[in-house]
Amino acid sequence: MAYEPTYQSPQFHGGDGMVTPSGSIESQQGRCTLDEPVTETIMRDLRSIGMKLKYVMLPRAREDKGQGLREWDLWGPLVLCLALGIMLSMHAEQASLAFGLVFIIVWVGSGIVTINALLLKGKISFFQSVCVLGYCIFPLVIAAFCSLMLNVIWLKVIFVTIGFTWATGASVNFMSELLPEDRKALGVYPVWLFYVAIAWLILIS
């Protein structure tokens, strides 16, 4: 017979939006990482980024409200942001301005969206939210890549629309979950605006 068959962990119904910050250190507990080869360390990080990117693209991310991105890292958003910036500035007349805009919109934008949620008394961890918002631009990065390959206006519109729907679908649930009932829309609107800004940059590039 099992030792504790019926023990049920406490569930806080009132505050289920409470998320504690959990970095990547937590997942490595109990494993000695000091004497492993560097390649292994890098590969593990790359694998974790790859897993999260895959997660964002799956509809599962919408259903469980971004919980798979709970162990945050900022490498993924950085890579995505750089990739998007390079793609958009490739054919632009004002290449450095385009790259700078992408960089500022992604980082300052996700920061402000998170601070906004904090000020609305959302129970949210800063870096986790920045991580979720950053990873969720992945569909838009794919849309940017596709429209770079096939430079036809109406195809671009289709790609960006799909990418935008996917990105907002994956992230809006995460944000609305953590906000008080009467101000969900106030927290979700900036998330929407954040992806509108990125989608617009891709569309006119």
């Binding site: 301005l97 385009a98 805009l101 430079n151």
Partner: peptide, 24 residues
């Protein structure tokens, strides 16, 4: 955004259109 879209619509060759990011 709308400033750029308006220019895109008005430009004679939409595929050659270059966005004016300085509007932001």
């Amino acid at each position: 955004a709308t400033g750029n879209f308006a220019r895109l619509i008005e430009s004679p060759h939409p595929s050659l259109f270059k966005a004016d990011y300085s509007l932001v």
